[in-house]
Amino acid sequence: MSSFGSVLRSLVASVRRQTATLTGTDARSAPVERKQRAADNHGRPAEFATVEVDPASVGRVRMTYVPSTDGDPDPGEIVWTWVPYEERDGRGKDRPVLIVAEEPAGTRLAVQLTSKPHDDSRDFVSIGIGPWDQQGRPSWVNVGRVFRVHPLGMRREASAIDKSSYVGVAAALKDRYRWH
């Protein structure tokens, strides 16, 4: 079996070299680039990608607490989606976000969760402990970064936060961005 694997690897390498020669690309970098693009949104089409948005540019935002564990991301629910890193270099990772509003186009606005304590920052609002963190750690949301989540870009629903925590997050977002 190991000789078959060697032959197969050799054949694949040969095809990559030939493809690189025909396309003018580096055969070693092409697979990495494809892998990076696929990892950026877990292989989902780019139009479903979670993206960071300028909160001032999203227009009128109506925040209403309406969680419903129906498979769709609803305000008040924590969902998992690919989130771009703050460096905005095309990389990111799968993270929990709190859905805070639904936009007319069907996309959702969200803020990122963290379990790293942030008691002294106006960018972070405590939402307590909940089933979204299997280790039972307290969580905060970062109101300093707002994301647009497409329902087809999320990986899964985790759970809903309680209404009083949602109201606290909504108040912080309204105060910071002058949302209604």
Rank of each mutant, 00 (worst) to 15 (best):
P104C: 02
V32P: 04
L98Q: 04
W80R: 14
E77T: 03
R37L: 15
A101P: 08
T69N: 12
A110R: 03
W132Y: 05
K116F: 07
R37E: 15
E103S: 10
I78M: 03
A38L: 08
Y65N: 07
Q36A: 14
P84H: 08
G43Q: 01
D70A: 03
T69I: 10
G24L: 05
S57R: 12
P131V: 04
E87N: 09
T69L: 13
D120S: 14
P31T: 03
T107Y: 05
E47K: 13
E33Y: 06
Y65K: 05
F124L: 10
R44Q: 11
L109F: 03
V66G: 08
V111I: 02
Q112G: 09
R37A: 12
E52S: 11
G76N: 03
P31C: 00
F124E: 14
T81A: 15
G43N: 02
G128H: 09
G43S: 00
G90N: 01
R34T: 05
D74Y: 01
H42F: 11
L113T: 10
S115F: 13
S29N: 08
R44I: 01
T114F: 06
A30C: 02
T107V: 01
R60W: 10
L109W: 00
P73C: 14
T69W: 07
V83W: 02
T64V: 15
D94A: 06
K93D: 15
H118R: 12
A56I: 07
E102P: 05
P117Q: 13
D54I: 07
E52D: 09
E52R: 14
G59L: 05
P73G: 09
E103T: 03
I127R: 04
T107G: 06
G59I: 02
R60C: 10
R108H: 10
D123T: 02
D54F: 12
T23I: 05
P73V: 14
P131I: 05
R91L: 09
M63F: 04
Y85D: 15
S126F: 07
Q36P: 04
A110M: 10
A110W: 06
A105H: 09
G92Q: 01
S68Q: 14
D74S: 08
F48G: 04
M63R: 13
V66D: 14
I78C: 07
T25L: 14
P67G: 06
W132C: 07
P117W: 13
E52K: 11
V97C: 07
T107D: 07
R44P: 00
P104K: 00
P45A: 02
G106N: 06
W132V: 05
E87W: 07
Q36C: 04
D70I: 01
W80T: 14
P75Q: 00
R34Q: 12
G130W: 06
D74K: 12
P96S: 13
F48V: 11
F48R: 09
D70C: 03
T25G: 13
D123N: 13
V83Q: 01
S115P: 02
E86I: 08
W132S: 04
A39D: 07
T50H: 07
R62Q: 15
T64Y: 10
V97G: 09
H42S: 14
E87V: 15
I129K: 15
D72I: 02
R37G: 04
I127K: 04
T114N: 11
